[in-house]
Write a protein that binds this DNA or RNA. Structure first.
Lengths: 177, 177
DNA sequence: CTTATGTTTCAGTTCTTACTGTAACTCCCA
DNA sequence: TGGGAGTTACAGTAAGAACTGAAACATAAG
C-alpha cells in the first residue's frame, strides 16, 4: 500500500463498521439478539433513512432476518418507518436522542419483564397469605417484600419513561452522596 | 379426595413450588438461566441453608448443573456458602434482604455489562474524533452522546450499589413529578 | 386483469447455550 | 498412604434461539 494521505471516507466507514460489530456483541451480552443490536447501531449512525435491502446488504443478512428484527425494533419504539415520496419502498430511521432511546427501552422492559413478574408475585402472595403452617408467615413476608420492591421499581420506571428530559440522571448523581 | 380440613403444610409446599417454578420462568424472560433463577428462588424462601444434594433433589437437576449455578450465584453475591459445625458438606443460604439483592445485581451488571460497553465506545470515539470526512462529525457526536449517557448511568449505578439503605427508590418516586 | 414491486411468513437448518453423568480431583481422617 | 466424602471439570447430548431462502401474499401501476 502507498503512503499517500489516508482516505478519510474509508476511515469513517471502518469506524462505523467497528461500532456496529461491537455494539452487536454488547447487545448480545445484554441478552439482546446480535442482529437486532447491529441493525439498531447501523440506523443510529446512518446519515439518512435506510431500506430493508440496504440493511440486508450492509450486514450480509437474509431478508427474513432483517424484516423480523426491523419489526421488533419498531415495536420497541427504537426505530420508525418512513416513506419517501414517489417511492414504494419502506425506509427506516432510528430515534437518535439518547434519552428518548432510554425511555423507550425502559417503557418496554417495564411492560414485558416487570409487569409479568409482579403478576406472578401477587398471585403467590394471595395464595400464601392465608396459609397457617410453620414457616408460612416467613414465606409470605419474604415474597411480599420482593413484590413491594418491584412495585416501587415499576412506578419509578413508569415515571422515568414519561419524563420529558434527561435531568433525572445528572440529578440523581448529585443527590447520591 | 375427601373434604377433610386441608393440609396447610402441603399447601405451603405447593405455594413455594409455584413460586420457584414461576420465578424460573421470569428469570428466563430476563435473560437469566432458568435453573439459576430457580435455585435462587428456592434459597430465598428456604427456612434454613441447603446442601447441593438437597437442591439437586428438590429441583430434579444434575450435580454438575447445580454446582455450576451455585458457583455463579455466589459470584454474583446473591448467595453464600456456610459451614455447619461437625459437617464437611457445604451449605448455601441466600441474601434475603431485597435491597441488598438489588445492590448485588446492580454491582455485577455494572461490572459485566456496562463497563465493557463504555470501553468499546471510548475506543470508537477516540478513533473517530480525528477523522475529517463528510458525516464524521455527526457520527462522532452521536457515539459520544451514547458514551456520555452510559458514563452517567454507570456512576449512578455505582452510587446506588454502594448506598446502604433502601431510601433511593421511595425518594425517587417522590421527586419525579 | 396482469405484471411489477415490495413485504411477510414459514419450514428447514445452523448455531448457541444449558444440562447430564461420569471421571478426575481434593481434602480430611485413620 | 489408603479410603471415604465431597467438589469440580468436562465430553457428549438435548433443547432452544436465531437465521436462511424461497414461496405466498399484498398493493400499485399499466
Amino acid at each position: 500500500m502507498s503512503n499517500a494521505p489516508v482516505d478519510s471516507v474509508a476511515e469513517l466507514r471502518v469506524a462505523r463498521e467497528q461500532f456496529v460489530a461491537q455494539w452487536g456483541a454488547i447487545g448480545n451480552a445484554w441478552g439482546i439478539n446480535r442482529t437486532m443490536a447491529q441493525i439498531h447501531a447501523l440506523l443510529i449512525t446512518a446519515p439518512a433513512s435506510m431500506s430493508t435491502d440496504e440493511i440486508m446488504d450492509d450486514l450480509k443478512i437474509s431478508r427474513g432476518n432483517a424484516n423480523g428484527n426491523l419489526r421488533e425494533l419498531v415495536s420497541w419504539g427504537l426505530i420508525r418507518s418512513v416513506l419517501r415520496r414517489g417511492d414504494r419502498k419502506e425506509y427506516f430511521e432510528a430515534e437518535k436522542d439518547v434519552w428518548k432511546m432510554f425511555c423507550a427501552i425502559t417503557r418496554e422492559r417495564r411492560r414485558r419483564e416487570v409487569a409479568p413478574a409482579i403478576d406472578v408475585l401477587r398471585n403467590v402472595v394471595a395464595r400464601s397469605g392465608s396459609i397457617d403452617a410453620p414457616g408460612a408467615g416467613a414465606f409470605n413476608e419474604q415474597v411480599a417484600a420482593i413484590l413491594s420492591f418491584l412495585e416501587t421499581a415499576d412506578s419509578v420506571m413508569d415515571k422515568v419513561a414519561r419524563s420529558e428530559q434527561n435531568t433525572v440522571l445528572p440529578w440523581a448523581l448529585k443527590f447520591l452522596k
